[in-house]
Amino acid sequence: MSSDPTVQPVHPSVVAQVDAADTTLHNPQRAVIALGSNLGNRLETLQGAIDALEDTPGVRVKAISPVYETEPWGVEPGSQANYFNAVVLVKTTLPPSSLLERGQAIEEAFLRVRSERWGPRTIDVDIVAYQGIVSEDPDLTLPHPRAHQRAFVLAPWHDVDPSAELPGHGEVAELLAAVGDAGVQARGDVELRLPE
């Protein structure tokens, strides 16, 4: 599904559930969103999630990282299929809480099941960072509390924004160098496309 314009998102009927927001993108904020999938057609699911983000009033997808294939994190080796991971940079007028609601709605549309911690999933939509905000809100901790430990977030983020910084932790390049990239491999044979 690399560049075939006839391929449609898996769930084109996903409708944005957002708070009242300035959908004209005046004074947009920058957010970093990590995507992951290890069930079903992983590439198609990631593309569908990106398309659904772009279809959200008040959100514009500005850049998409290369796809990485990664070993599952936090579980026994070989107990799950590998993930496809990517990082998406967006500009948005939605507040963090509404962007979170939208991410959860996308997960639900792709039948994400939350039966076990770090369990397999059709799609994971995580807000990694939002305009430099540092917050310990129990509903949405910013930045993502484990992003600095995860090569599958840091490697694609570094690819799409080499000078990025993770608020409270430092430069993404240095964080990636510290954790290493074992178990994380760029997949040059597949790609995600920016929505038109």
Rank of each mutant, 00 (worst) to 15 (best):
V7F: 09
H26P: 00
D55Q: 14
Y68T: 01
A164R: 04
L140H: 10
A34C: 01
V67P: 07
V125Q: 11
G170R: 07
R117A: 06
S65H: 11
M1N: 11
V67H: 03
G183F: 04
P28C: 09
T24G: 08
L99G: 07
G48D: 00
S3H: 12
D51I: 00
A21D: 09
V7S: 06
S3W: 07
V128L: 13
V18S: 11
R114K: 15
L99D: 10
Q131F: 08
S135A: 15
R121D: 04
V75S: 15
S2M: 03
P77F: 07
A109F: 08
I106E: 03
S97M: 13
S135W: 13
S2T: 15
H26N: 06
D181K: 11
E76V: 10
D22A: 05
V61I: 08
Y83L: 05
T92M: 11
P57M: 00
T45D: 00
V113L: 12
P120H: 09
P167A: 13
R117Q: 12
G58M: 02
G48F: 00
A186V: 11
L100D: 10
H148I: 01
T92R: 07
W73D: 12
F152N: 11
D126Q: 08
L100G: 12
Q47R: 06
E165S: 12
R187W: 01
V88E: 05
I50P: 00
Q17E: 12
L166D: 15
P195Y: 14
D51L: 06
Y68S: 03
S3V: 05
A155K: 04
I64N: 09
Q80V: 03
N41H: 02
S79Y: 11
W157G: 12
P95Q: 15
Q149I: 01
E171K: 15
V14S: 14
K62S: 13
V7I: 13
S65F: 09
R60A: 14
H11R: 14
L43S: 06
S163W: 01
H158I: 00
Q8C: 00
D161V: 10
A147K: 10
Y68V: 00
P138A: 13
V59F: 12
P195M: 05
R193S: 10
R117M: 00
L140T: 09
V18K: 02
D126W: 03
D124P: 13
D159S: 14
G132K: 08
L89Y: 03
P167T: 10
V10L: 14
G58P: 09
A129E: 13
L166Y: 14
G119V: 12
L25D: 06
H144G: 06
T141V: 15
Q185E: 11
L46K: 00
L89E: 01
D19N: 14
V18P: 02
A86H: 02
I50F: 03
A105L: 07
I50K: 00
F84T: 02
P5N: 09
S2Y: 03
E196M: 02
V67I: 08
P145L: 13
